[in-house]
Computed example of a mutant assay.
Amino acid sequence: MVLLSSTRPSPKEQKDCISNSGTFNYDIKYGGTTVKPLSILKEDKELSKDGFLINHSKTLVGAGSDAYEKGKTALQTWMHFGLSWAFVDPKTPIENGVKFCACVKEFIPWLGILLQVAYVNETRNPKLGVSSFGFGGGTLRGHLLSSKERFSVEMDEEKQVWYEILSFSKPAHPLSVIGYSYCSPI
C-alpha cells in the first residue's frame, strides 16, 4: 500500500498505512544480502540477473569517538531522513521487525512508502578502536520499488567516521519504471 496525501502525512495516516502493510516484496533469498560488503554484492550475478541495480555512497563525516556516537544517534533518530522533502517519524524504534513509513514529497503529493527493519548490527573492537552501527531495511508489498538498503556509521582504525548507504533495487510498480531510468548502477 502507498499512502498519497496532498499535505505532510500525519502520524495517524502513517500508522493506518503501516497497519495495512504486508510482507517483504522481494525474494526471501535476498533477506540478508545488504549485510555483505559492497565487493561481494558487486560479484553477485543473481542480483543483476534478477534486474537489481546496486547503489552505494560512503561519506567521511568526522573523526573520533564523539563523532561516531553522534552519527550513531543520528541514525537511531532517523536524521538521515530529516529533510524538507523526506522524513520518518523519529520515534520509530530501530529494531528487527519494526515496520515504518518513509514519507517523501514527490511533486505535488506526498508519498508514504512502507518498509521494515530487517536487521540491526553493532560491533565494537576496543583493541583496534573500531566501531560500527547499522541497520538494514526492506520494502514491503505495495512499495513502488523492490529493494533492500543498509544505513551505517563506522569508525575505522584511523578514527575516521564514515556514513554509508548501500542498496539494491528494481521497479516493482509500472509507475516506478518512469523515474527509475534516472538511476544507474555503480
Score class of each variant (00 low, 15 high):
95 E>Y: 08
73 T>F: 00
177 V>G: 05
80 H>G: 00
31 G>N: 15
153 V>H: 02
83 L>K: 01
51 G>P: 01
103 C>S: 08
57 S>Q: 07
126 P>W: 07
98 V>N: 04
115 L>N: 14
113 I>H: 07
107 F>K: 12
20 N>S: 00
131 S>Q: 12
61 V>Q: 00
170 K>T: 06
78 W>Y: 07
126 P>G: 02
103 C>L: 05
112 G>E: 07
132 S>A: 05
128 L>M: 11
49 K>F: 13
176 S>I: 02
13 E>C: 00
12 K>D: 01
89 D>H: 13
9 P>S: 10
26 Y>S: 11
37 P>G: 04
148 K>C: 11
89 D>T: 14
6 S>I: 09
148 K>W: 07
106 E>D: 15
124 R>C: 07
103 C>I: 06
47 L>Q: 08
131 S>H: 10
72 K>T: 05
33 T>V: 10
102 A>M: 14
116 Q>D: 02
166 L>F: 00
183 C>L: 14
169 S>V: 10
177 V>P: 03
29 K>L: 10
140 L>E: 09
160 Q>R: 12
125 N>T: 06
39 S>H: 10
176 S>P: 03
11 P>V: 12
135 F>T: 05
175 L>R: 13
120 V>E: 08
22 G>D: 01
170 K>F: 04
138 G>M: 02
16 D>G: 04
76 Q>K: 15
105 K>V: 01
62 G>L: 04
21 S>T: 14
119 Y>E: 10
174 P>N: 02
120 V>F: 09
145 L>K: 00
81 F>L: 11
110 W>R: 05
89 D>M: 14
183 C>Y: 09
170 K>I: 05
64 G>P: 10
44 D>S: 04
101 C>E: 07
162 W>G: 12
68 Y>Q: 09
79 M>L: 13
126 P>S: 10
129 G>I: 11
98 V>E: 08
45 K>P: 01
44 D>R: 05
55 N>K: 11
23 T>S: 12
167 S>N: 12
74 A>V: 03
36 K>H: 13
5 S>Y: 03
161 V>G: 08
